[in-house]
Amino acid sequence: MDSAPRVVAELAANAALHGRVPGRDFRLTLTVHSRTLRIDVADARGDRLPVCPRAACEGPAESGYGLLLVEELADRWGVDAGRVSSKAVWAELGLDALR
């Protein structure tokens, strides 16, 4: 049950920190379809795509482990390019695993 809030928190924090454009907010959307929770976080920085978590963890670093956490907790995750310089980072979690 802790997985979904952690994934939401990580994706929202990434959008606030890395996807911020003055005067524009990020958008969080939660949907359920066929026993799967989909978490979408869209921001205005389509030019800044997330780095593959495994590649980011090749050496010691103080940050950059958030998407590694998302990768471990979610069944699937990815990035969709949006319209007009935006992107959405999404993650899907099976509801059966959230008990």
Results as ranks from 00 to 15, higher is better:
L68W: 05
G78V: 07
A74Y: 05
D25I: 09
C57T: 13
G59N: 14
A61K: 13
D25T: 12
A88M: 07
A55G: 09
R20I: 03
V70Q: 01
E10Q: 07
L68C: 11
R38F: 02
A74S: 05
L37V: 04
W90H: 06
G19C: 03
W90F: 08
V84T: 12
L28A: 02
V84Y: 10
L28S: 03
R83E: 15
A16C: 06
A15F: 08
F26C: 04
V41H: 05
D2G: 09
L30T: 04
L73E: 01
G59F: 14
A13W: 14
R48G: 07
F26P: 01
L73Q: 00
G78P: 05
L73S: 00
D80A: 08
A81E: 15
R6Q: 04
A16G: 09
G64L: 00
R48C: 13
G64S: 04
R20K: 08
A9E: 03
L98D: 07
V70D: 01
G64A: 02
G82Q: 06
R48D: 15
L93Y: 05
L67F: 15
K87L: 15
W77Y: 14
R83M: 11
R76E: 11
A61H: 15
V32Q: 11
T29Q: 13
L11P: 01
A97Q: 13
L73T: 00
A44R: 07
G23V: 02
G94Y: 05
R27Q: 11
A74Q: 03
R38N: 02
G23H: 10
A56K: 10
L95N: 07
L98S: 00
L49Y: 12
D40I: 06
D80L: 12
R20V: 03
G94M: 02
G46L: 09
R54D: 12
G59S: 14
V51Y: 12
L11V: 03
T29C: 04
A91F: 02
A81C: 09
L95A: 04
C52G: 11
L17I: 12
R45S: 08
C57A: 15
W77S: 07
R83S: 12
S86C: 03
R24C: 03
C57N: 13
S34N: 14
A97K: 10
R76S: 07
E10L: 12
V89I: 09
L17V: 13
L95G: 04
E58G: 15
